[in-house]
């Protein structure tokens, strides 16, 4: 069976060989993805247009809301714009690295193509999670950064280097939370073939991630903070950038939830792999 620790032969030198091997493999996967995208250039550009439109849609929704109010909880208009930007940034980077791979998993199981990946002498989760790169995600993430900078200017805020580093680290945790949870959902496809609907259902959760946490209370807030931490993934980084952090506890909570999701996701994946029976045999 494959194990998450990469196979290191006994004869390997002291510097772990996987440290050189895996970046090499990943580079090859990147080259493949670039070649694939460039094969359908107009389609590649159109998908960027689609994402830009949906991003604009979210921003216009918020500007319409703020025609009729000055604050939502403690959040002012440009703070929410920054929040939506942060959420879009996280979502797009996540999408660039992981989304296609997560949605493809059920297809790999259904067709039995997972056999070939299991046989490769690399960690299976690595190859399944990172096989394709969606380059459009990086273009859209850049746009999100632009919107965030514009919002910061409107807020007359200057951010310190420490804030930016903190922001990026927290975004990384947010991305890992999205990835862990969606990969866990995708693992359900080992049990039922029609898991693609479930995976797309997760998409609805992105809608919550971009909403100001102040708006929520009660059970809803508890569930989406402590069970599915959607209200943390982009709210905490946005609060760091805008000096709105209530206590450092929020940062710790996000990091803890991230670690928790990753562990659960790995356990779920291992359990699911045991359940795998090839489709073709």
């Amino acid at each position: 069976m494959n194990s998450p620790e990469s196979p290191i032969p006994h004869s390997a030198p002291r510097t772990p060989r996987w440290l050189r091997r895996y970046p090499g493999i990943y580079l090859a996967l990147w080259k493949n993805s670039v070649a694939r995208e460039m094969g359908f250039k107009s389609n590649f550009l159109l998908w960027i247009v689609v994402e830009v439109l949906w991003f604009g849609l979210q921003l216009s929704f918020i500007s319409v809301l703020y025609l009729h109010t000055d604050t939502i909880g403690t959040w002012t208009k440009w703070e929410v714009v920054l929040l939506i930007g942060a959420s879009h940034f996280i979502q797009q980077i996540y999408q660039a690295f992981f989304l296609i791979n997560c949605t493809n998993l059920s297809e790999l199981v259904r067709t039995g193509k997972l056999d070939f990946l299991l046989l490769l002498p690399v960690n299976t989760r690595f190859i399944v999670s990172l096989r394709q790169v969606d380059l459009g995600g990086f273009v859209n993430a850049t746009l999100a950064v632009g919107v965030m900078i514009y919002a910061l200017i409107q807020l007359h805020l200057t951010v310190t280097l420490l804030q930016i580093i903190g922001f990026l680290m927290l975004c990384l945790s947010g991305i890992l939370i999205h990835y862990s949870l969606m990969f866990l959902l995708a693992s359900i496809s080992f049990w039922t073939v029609r898991a693609q609907g479930i995976v797309w259902g997760y998409y609805n959760l992105f809608n919550i991630a971009r909403m100001p946490d102040d708006a929520f209370r009660g059970v809803f807030k508890a569930v989406f903070t402590f069970a599915i931490p959607m209200l943390l993934v982009s709210n905490v980084p946005a609060r760091v950038l805008t000096d709105k952090l209530r206590s450092p506890g929020q940062i710790l909570l996000l990091l803890a939830m991230c670690a928790f999701c990753m562990v659960i996701s790995e356990l779920g994946w291992r359990q699911s792999l045991k359940h795998y029976t090839s489709a073709s045999s």
């Binding site: 809301l65 009729h68 109010t69 609805n204 809608n207 708006a215 809803f220």
Partner: peptide
């Protein structure tokens, strides 16, 4: 889920 979130957002307003 998003529907509920939108309703919450309006309530906060």
């Amino acid at each position: 889920i998003p529907l509920l979130a939108t309703i919450y957002l309006w309530r906060a307003i």
